[in-house]
Each structure stands twice: as structure tokens, then as C-alpha cells.
Design a protein around this nucleic acid. Sequence first.
DNA 1: TACATCAGGATTGTCGACAATCTACTGATG
DNA 2: CATCAGTAGATTGTCGACAATCCTGATGTA
Lengths: 226, 226
Amino acid sequence: MDLREGQSEIAEASLSLAERLFLTLRGEIVEGQIPAGSKISEPELARRFNASRGSLREALMRLESLGLLERRVNVGARVVDLTERGLLELYDVREALEGMACRLAALERTEEDLAALRQMLARHEQQEELQAGRAYFQPEGDFDFHFRIVQASGNDLLIDTLCNRLYYRVRMYRYQLGMASPRAKRAFHEHSHIIEAIEAGDGELAEILMRRHIRASRQNIEKKLR
Amino acid sequence: MDLREGQSEIAEASLSLAERLFLTLRGEIVEGQIPAGSKISEPELARRFNASRGSLREALMRLESLGLLERRVNVGARVVDLTERGLLELYDVREALEGMACRLAALERTEEDLAALRQMLARHEQQEELQAGRAYFQPEGDFDFHFRIVQASGNDLLIDTLCNRLYYRVRMYRYQLGMASPRAKRAFHEHSHIIEAIEAGDGELAEILMRRHIRASRQNIEKKLR
DNA sequence: TACATCAGGATTGTCGACAATCTACTGATG
DNA sequence: CATCAGTAGATTGTCGACAATCCTGATGTA
């Protein structure tokens, strides 16, 4: 595979080589093709992508700032490993940030935001009925939901922190620990109520419901882990 | 100035050159020696520090991931500029995260944490009495307070997000927009009540008080800006 | 056997040079 | 006079090589 030739799925010409490497590696780490906890060899990866070590190192540093890699001077980089503790920490941070996002979304939402949210909800309901209980697409659907609400908050710092930083870790846990939520039906109703609160402009309620939603998901995971 | 020779205030030998550059530049950006909104010239900075462009670029990328710099491909890096909106966004994110930190600190705090918090509070009280109203050291004192509570939360992701990421932006606004809080006496009492809640192990109350504390600070700034 | 010491090999950190790209100015044209 | 194309200069992106550092395992000693 040679990213310079534009053969990659992600290789848009307008991006720098280092950025394409970053995007490719991010995907492989999130999906576990590069296993969690494994060591990264700069020369090996550079050869694999026909890139120089410099460009590769730039990509690695971006991954580090995403929290997907840990680097130590004169030692090298390792993919973070997935721990129960790390997963639970992630939930607490999401509860705080997405709760706030939900509050802000209720106050700042535009008509477009509302239309998109309603449409998404309808689509999810349809999918749910079709698949009655199997909840196959739910993970990505749940992701859409949270993603869109954060976008609607209008707070760029919040959006960046969640969507460009934390969510890749969330997806990494989902892919690799296979946490396809078995709470499909219940989650759908919670989503529905949250959107109602946002529509009503009730920031306080929207925040409470979102926090409860995330905490329920966390408790569900916690129970599963024992 | 040549960071390789160890003449810098920050030049600990165990760090890589790129890391020392990063620390130095971070300080200069936070304190405004490199003005907000100004363009960064890689060749110029590299000459100034007697470093190669490669090492400097590594430092710049870390600054970007801190949100202190914005880079665009084939164009270069600029220091972020300080806007009213950005400041208010920062407050909302802090309210969410530090509220959660406070809740967790109330549940997870160790005896050492409590001792440190009490001692810090006593020191601040003393300083406040000494300076009666002038509130000169309050900004750094306030910083200590928030910093320590976040540490006591025990959530590494939360700690990293606040202490290694957001707080540098906070300090940048404080230095350059000169937001020495005029709420010294009132802030002290709020701090005091928050620590009481943490001591009592009342996570819910601790979170509410911290959020109110930060929101009051935000409203104070908002009023000032008009 | 357990522990410390010390090469050998490999990996990371740093550098200077070349290629690709953008910016600003000059000049031509409607 | 305004607008646009083109060129010159400077800046960023990328690369390969050298130096500094670390890890592994082999050797020797208590």
C-alpha cells in the first residue's frame, strides 16, 4: 500500500501525506487491526506505507494527542490498551460533556438541527421495528444520535473535545470489546425523550435525561463486566 | 537562546529537544510574548532556538493538539486568537468537567487529598486577610484550587483533559485579557463550601456547588465584557 | 543459581537538503 | 481604473542519513 499514490480509501489529494497516514492508522487502531497494547515500530510502518519516518512520526504524534497512542522518549510508541477502568472513566467524562452539550443544544438549536434530529429518530425507529430486538445497527445509530446532539450544542470547544478526541476512544472500545448495546428498545425511548426536551428548549431537563441515559449505559456495561 | 545547551529555565536534560521547545513556546504563547493571532514562521523560530525545523515542527504540532495553535496545510501555523466566544465556551466546558471532577473527588478522595485541600484553603485565607481586597494572588490561588480538586477526582482522562489541555487556554485568557478575579472574598467562601462537601463525601452537592462557582465566575466575566 | 556488567543490534532523536505549494508583486489587458 | 495572469520569492512538506539512546542477551562473578 502506498498512500502517496492515492490508492487508499482515505487518500484525498488535498491532504498531506502525514495526515493521510494519520487517518489510516487511526482507523486501524480503532478497529483493532493494529492490536491494543502493541508496540509501534517506526521503520516497519514507514516501509509498509512507502513513507519516510518523518511523515510517519508526524502521524504518530497526532495519534498520541488523540490518546490512541502513548509515546515515551527514546523508547517508542505503544497503542493504548483497553482497560475496564479506562472504559468507565470514558463514561464519566462523556456524562459530563454530553450532558452539557445537551443542555446547550436545547438552548441553541436551530430549526435545521431539530429537523435532522427528528428525521434521525424516525429512521432509527424504523430500523428497530425491522430488526425487532436484534439491535444490529444500534451501535452506529446510537453514535449518530450522540454525534448530532453534540453538533447542535454550537460550542466548538465541546464539539472538538468530543467528536475529534473522545469518540475515537469510544469507538475503539465498542469495536474491540464488542459492546453492541443490548438496550436497543430502551435506548430508543430515552433518545426520544431527550429530543423532546431539546425541542421544548428545556435545557435543564435535556441535560438530566442525557446524563441518566449515559449512566444507564455505563451501569449496563459495569454489570456485564462482572 | 539555545535550548540544546541547557540554558533555558525549562531545559531538563531528560527531555527531548522537541519537548523543551514545546514547553518554552507554550509558556510564551500563554503569557503573550508570542501574541495571540500572530503567524508562526518555522524558519525564524528554528533559527532563534538553534534547532532544526524538524524538531521545531514537532513542538508546533504538540501546541496544535493543545489548541494553542492552528495549522493549515501548506499555509502554516497561527496562534489562536482570544475571543469572547472562545472564553465563554471554555467556561461551559469547565463547568461540565470540573463539576464531574468535584463529584468524583467527593467519592474518591484520599486522606492526603483532604489534608492538601484543607491546607491550601488555610493558606488562601491567610493571603486574603493580608491583602484585604486587593486579591492579587487570587488568580493563581484559584488555579491551585481547581487543579487540586481535579487531581483528587482520580479519573485520569478527566485529569488529562483539564490539566494538560484546557487549563493552558484558561491561563492564556487570564494572562492576556487580565481577568484577575475581583471576586476574591466571595470565591474564597465558595471554595470553602465546596471542600466541605468533598469532605462530607457528598458528591451531588459538591458538583452543584462547583458548577455554581464556575457559572458565577462566567457571569462575572460576561458582565465585565459589556 | 542469582545478580551485575557490558557489548551488539536495533530504535529513536535530530539534522540539513530538495521538492511541492502558496503568497505577493508585477505587468498586461479589458 | 479594475481585474486577472504570470512570475519570483519564500514557506511548508518530505526525505534519507547520522548521532544518541535504549533493549537484549551473553558473560563473568559472588
